[in-house]
Simulated assay, not measured.
Amino acid sequence: MSLLVLGIESSCDETGVALVRTREHGVPELLGQALHSQIAMHADYGGVVPELASRDHIRRIIPLANEALAQAGKALEAIDVVAYTRGPGLAGALLVGAGVACALGAALARPVLGVHHLEGHLLSPFLSADPPEFPFVALLVSGGHTQLMRVDGVGRYRLLGETIDDAAGEAFDKSAKLLGLGYPGGPALARLADFGDATTYKLPRPLLHSGDLDFSFAGLKTAVLTQARKLEGSPCEQQRADLAASTQAAIVEVLAKKSLKALAQTGLDRLVVAGGVGANRALREQLNAACAARGARVYYPELALCTDNGAMIALAAAMRLQGGVEAPNRDYAFDVKPRWPLDQLAQAA
C-alpha cells in the first residue's frame, strides 16, 4: 500500500513543502512541491536573522502547502503522514515547522514523523533521474556541515570525517564577505571566480595531507583575510576575481581529494554529493573528472534540490517508512533538535 507523505522544511531561511508518494518497488515519487527563499529579506542584514526567519516561516507554510497540494492534485484529507524537519537548524525556525506539522497531524488524525535535515540532503539524489544505489560514500556540504559518511542504507550511516571548525559553506560565505560580496556569499564568490585566475594566489589547503578525512577551513579564511586587506582601496576588479577563484580552488581541491580518499579507504565506487555547496560547478567538474579517472560514479541531487526544500524531507520520511526503519507516531507533543549529529540518528530517533 502506498502512502502520501507531506514534508515541511523550515530549518533556516527557506520554507519548503512537498508531497511524496511511496511505491512498493522503487524510489518514492515526488508529486508536488513549493518553496520560498528568504534571501531577499536577509540580504539587507548580510546574513540570516533568526527571528525574522521564524516569522516568515509562519506566514509562508500554509500557502505553500496549498500550492503543493494543488500541484499534486491532492486534497488535504488524502495525506497519510505529515513529516517535518526536527533538526538541526535554528531553534525558532524548527519550532514553526514542527508546530504546524503536529497541529495538522492532530487535526487530520494522521501520524507525524520528525526528520533529520541532513538525512534529507543525503537522500535527495534519489529524486534525480539517475538515482544511486547503496552502499556509497556521501559528501555532505550544507551550511555549517562538511562531512564524509559511509552509507549502507537508510538509517545506516558511519561517520568517516567531519569539519573541525569552519565548514566549506562557511569558508565560501566568510571569504565572500571579506571580498565585499553580497548575501548569500557562496554563490556570489563562485560567480566572481568565473572571471579570475585560480593560480594567482597561493592559498593553503588545510588538512589536505593530514592522513585522515577531517576538514578545517579556518586557516584558509585567515589567508583570504590577509590577501583581502592588501587589496583594500584597490580599483582593480581583476584582483578580487583572482582571489575569489583562488579561494574556490582551495576549497574544491580539499573536498575533492578527501572524497577520493574516502572512496579508496572504503573500497566503494559510488560517491553522493549533497547540500548547497554540491551545486558549485567547479566542485562538480573536479569530482566528475577525478572519479571518472578511477572508474567511480558521482551522483548529485537536481540543482533545484541542492538548497533546503520540502521534497527532501518528504522523501527521507517516505524512505524511512518504506524501509521499515521508523514508524510515525500520533503523539503530537513535539520537540526540536537544533544540534543533532547525523551519525547519532539511530540513537536519537
Rank of each mutant, 00 (worst) to 15 (best):
G120V: 13
D197Y: 02
A218K: 01
L140S: 10
E170S: 06
H121R: 12
P132R: 12
G186T: 04
G186H: 07
E119P: 07
R205I: 03
D194K: 15
S216G: 09
S175C: 12
R205H: 03
A107F: 06
G143I: 00
D166H: 02
G186F: 04
Y157H: 07
D173H: 06
A176Y: 08
F195R: 15
A198H: 10
H117W: 05
G114D: 00
D130Y: 00
G185L: 08
G211W: 02
F134N: 13
V141K: 01
L148T: 11
A193L: 05
F126P: 03
F172Q: 05
H209K: 12
R150F: 01
V112C: 08
G169A: 14
E170G: 05
D194R: 15
T199Y: 10
G114H: 02
A193G: 05
F172N: 05
A190D: 11
P132D: 12
S142Q: 06
F215D: 02
D173L: 04
R158V: 15
V137Y: 07
K177V: 07
A107T: 12
R110E: 02
L127D: 07
R205M: 02
G169Q: 13
T146D: 08
K202N: 15
A190S: 15
A107H: 09
R158C: 14
G180P: 10
D165T: 05
A107E: 06
E119I: 12
D214R: 14
F215K: 05
L160N: 09
H116P: 06
V137D: 07
P187Y: 08
L148A: 13
P132I: 13
D214C: 15
P125E: 11
L179S: 08
K174S: 07
A129V: 12
P132T: 13
M149K: 00
H116Q: 10
E170M: 08
D165Q: 01
M149W: 13
A198Y: 07
A218G: 06
L127S: 09
E133H: 11
D214A: 14
Y183G: 02
E119M: 13
A188S: 10
A193W: 00
F195V: 14
A107W: 07
L178D: 02
L159R: 06
L118Q: 11
D130G: 00
R205Y: 00
L148C: 13
F172C: 06
Y157A: 00
P111T: 04
R110P: 01
L208T: 03
R156T: 14
E170T: 05
K174Q: 08
G144E: 02
G180H: 11
A129N: 12
T200Q: 12
A188Y: 04
R158T: 15
A193Y: 04
V112A: 01
L123M: 03
F215M: 09
H117M: 07
